[in-house]
Design a protein around this nucleic acid. Sequence first.
DNA 1: ATCTGCGTTGCACACGATTGCAGAGATACT
DNA 2: AGTATCTCTGCAATCGTGTGCAACGCAGAT
Lengths: 357, 357
Amino acid sequence: MQRRSKKGEGGLVTLEDIALKAGVSHSTVSRALADSPLVNPSTKERIQNLAREAGYQVNQVARNLKTRSTKTIGLVVPEVSNPFYPELIQRVADHAKLAGYSLQLHLSAADQESESDCIASLSANRADGVLLVTGERGLVARSQVNALAASGTPVVIMGWVEDSDHLELVAGDDSAGGRELAKHLADLGHTRIAVLGKAPHRGAFDRLVGFGDVLRERGIPLLPEMSIEVKNEEDVRLGVTRLLALPDPPTAIFAYQDSLAAVVYRQLEEAGVSIPNEMTVVGFDDLDLATYLSPRLTTVGAHISPLASAFVGLLVSRIQGTHPEPAPESIIVTPKLIVRASSAPPRSRGVAFGSLS
Amino acid sequence: MQRRSKKGEGGLVTLEDIALKAGVSHSTVSRALADSPLVNPSTKERIQNLAREAGYQVNQVARNLKTRSTKTIGLVVPEVSNPFYPELIQRVADHAKLAGYSLQLHLSAADQESESDCIASLSANRADGVLLVTGERGLVARSQVNALAASGTPVVIMGWVEDSDHLELVAGDDSAGGRELAKHLADLGHTRIAVLGKAPHRGAFDRLVGFGDVLRERGIPLLPEMSIEVKNEEDVRLGVTRLLALPDPPTAIFAYQDSLAAVVYRQLEEAGVSIPNEMTVVGFDDLDLATYLSPRLTTVGAHISPLASAFVGLLVSRIQGTHPEPAPESIIVTPKLIVRASSAPPRSRGVAFGSLS
DNA sequence: ATCTGCGTTGCACACGATTGCAGAGATACT
DNA sequence: AGTATCTCTGCAATCGTGTGCAACGCAGAT
């Protein structure tokens, strides 16, 4: 059993191994496994059988070197603790697989250098293309992205960027989403509305702009003491407490992200304020999380699947595209308002309707 | 500017390109960039500078082929919609990076073939090792795993498997976790306890065994009508409704997973049953989700970071290990009980304490 | 002046797959 | 029988790096 001893040698089976067994050259084996019409049908089948029973697995590393393509796309994501990203990863993975590409995931985390590191690694590994989702600070590694694109590897960005010139971009229309929410709250009759979120970077800025525009149109003020900027959960705690302590507290809170709304929920509950009877809360993103919360969260968001589809689709078209430098394309997806159970008309001040005081 | 024109050719900069600029052979460039003591310090520096300003990025594909190692480990995970997995991915990525490995993520999803496909792909890409997290059906692609391990690629499994023989394994002690929860509920005074979960595959089986053992010790019955098997969210809805409709309804519900507990919460809320006053709910896993729920969920779980550390550590030691076939090692982590706000003593039946009826 | 040794560099092969090109048979046609 | 054509197979180069081995120049020792 010489074959046995060869197998145990540690290295995996190569074309040459099968060629020896079949008594042909490795070229013929290569062609046979590629189902080339150049090889005799009978020998082709014989070789394919031999390969199967020898457990042959093509060495992608060697193939990639020769073909100068890895059929791999890199996906750079800031983190995965915000449930938006896992949902996105799932969808991107599905669409990529469908297009014949496999995924190389990198987490750019919080630290500054990391985003550049991810791109460097993907460049070194010769990914055919790169999908980059920006975090709260926008596109940190802009120069690396430009360098990568200049060397012929397409890059598509998702999320907020400071300046979208010369970039392929997929993003939600944050401003329109903000407008939808403001309309909803105004229609319900709210006039004292608070906003709460991380520093106005990222889409958060546009969300607030759209939100504020509608309020202004309707003559509803957005008071400074009703605008809370937070950095972490503790800040949310303090902010909500401060809002409730105001002489004229708000009747509705708009949290820039669903995940922040969840923290607001917790804090309101501890303070004994019921949602939506005593306080309306709305979020932004429409994560799965929004339906786990009780009451289920009214929010605004785009379906992730079409977003991911556009994301991958744009990249793949750039990878396969023959045109060397097409005009950069931007795809803007308009999110939809999803009314659930966390929003209701404000309680009339000083008068208690309903059975509970 | 001949260099410019070369750069624009599409292909990236190679060792040979820099060799030409420096007037040396590619071997010398290779050694210089590897900081080998074999090259003259002055030329070494000159070459390094040239490489930097030319934007040289080593071609990992070629290097991998030559060195027969990719410094890459594959991570196979069933899905990412259950928040347990993203948390795990994050930690595994961190630990892998620390050990000098980059990650190749594959989602084995629900379908049967996929787990095998993932392994095949990782094998083809010559990952140095594979981490596989099992789903609800345990280790589906056992034969492929064995084949991969036999060919010299270490594989470490995490999660429940039907038969752990000959496998490197990292798992939580589900049975111990179940015991902890049962003790907690018994200590609180509960005697009518329901259990709810997916079909008793996976660790769920062991969780229930440990849970049941303690109940038996304490003389608490586990009635058939109190045992709900669910497949999806709709089943949870029906199950909870059925429990509440019993002539003698339970005072506590044990959901096998935190994510199921979240659905139970929703259903109880809709039925107007308050937690924990009228019903105690406990989960299993200790996800971040558990603290988002209101009231915050009492559960049991292991910290994911040490789990991930053991996972990666075991694999890396196997990759670097010289010993060809060491005895398979199993690492079992004991989870801890985390008491939060969803568990309380049962209300005395028929008598209303407190201010609310 | 020759030898030994050290420091430095280049030659050439290997990794495993793909593929253009040439050549060997077999067949058909004149 | 000779030639053209077609089918099939092997040779060899190539992708970009890493590295053993030989060779080179130069210094010091004999």
